[in-house]
Amino acid sequence: MRPFLYEKAADAAEAVHFFAQRAQAKYLGGGTNLVDLMRENIERPEIVIDVTGLSREIRDVDDGGLVIDAGTKNTTVASHRTVRERYPVLAQAILAGASAQIRNMATVGGNLMQRTRCYYFYDDAARCNKRERGKGCDAIEGFNRIHAILGASSHCVATHPSDMCVALAALDAIVYLEGPQGARHLRLVDLHRLPGDTPDIETELRAGELITAVEIPALPFAIRSTYRKVRDRSSYAFALVSVAAALDVDDKGNVRDVRLALGGVAHKPWRATAAEQALRGAPASEENFRRAAEAELKDAVGLAGNAFKIELAKRVIVNTLQKLAMESGAGS
């Protein structure tokens, strides 16, 4: 780890101010990913701005939504009564990630900014376009069992490792930012980028922008939502494939509305819009769930090690939707 300056910011404005003081700056939340990457010399900031002193509240919004400050710990979010009752998918996604110790440290903002677990990204002896643009990618013909099947490029096949973001993508979350040019907000699904030929640029954040909060709009039917994660251990492992889903079925057994997002399959949390579109208005049947899954995975590309994820993702989508449909009384 290279030496760095440490500043603790009292508020977002101060954090942004500190950030501008050095060419290489990083905001520090719980440190669960950043400290590891700094120790690996992958992140080499000259200044680290501790933003854990910023407000860490969870607030109800008038229309029934929630605003979660970016410094809020993962455990706090997962334990929050409103989250558990109105957005079980979010609580479950958080609880499916990492370990209790890490969830006690990790912040919401830091979770959004997590970097990939690609083996070749972590090893500076390997070629990685994400670490060094134009170097090449050793994962494409190497160990790629945990890599992307959707939206990848010939430059990068890494995945985004977060569970929480998958739930947030499904819930239409909005990310609030504060930066040198002032405040703005983005849809979470627009925050992370696909790799293209610049996999080193992972988000739409502008230089110095700090994530200050995440808003989850009201979504009454999210009361019937769930997160299903498939991984190599029963606990404490990153997702091979995960599905965040919320389903609203009408009296006739038709899908009134649906939210679906996938994890472990792409460079960003993958909102399954094609599947959602295929499902809206259609009977909530296994056959339709399968059709929707096929639509979503239509363009999926498997590598030598990860082709299984295509079928796995389809099955988990179908299975998860079936369970939600069953819960809502629409047997399929």
Binding site: L28, T32, Q101, I102, M105
Partner: peptide, 9 residues
């Protein structure tokens, strides 16, 4: 609260 002290500066 339990945390991993190795990841804590």
């Amino acid at each position: 609260e339990r945390i991993n002290s190795c990841l804590a500066l």
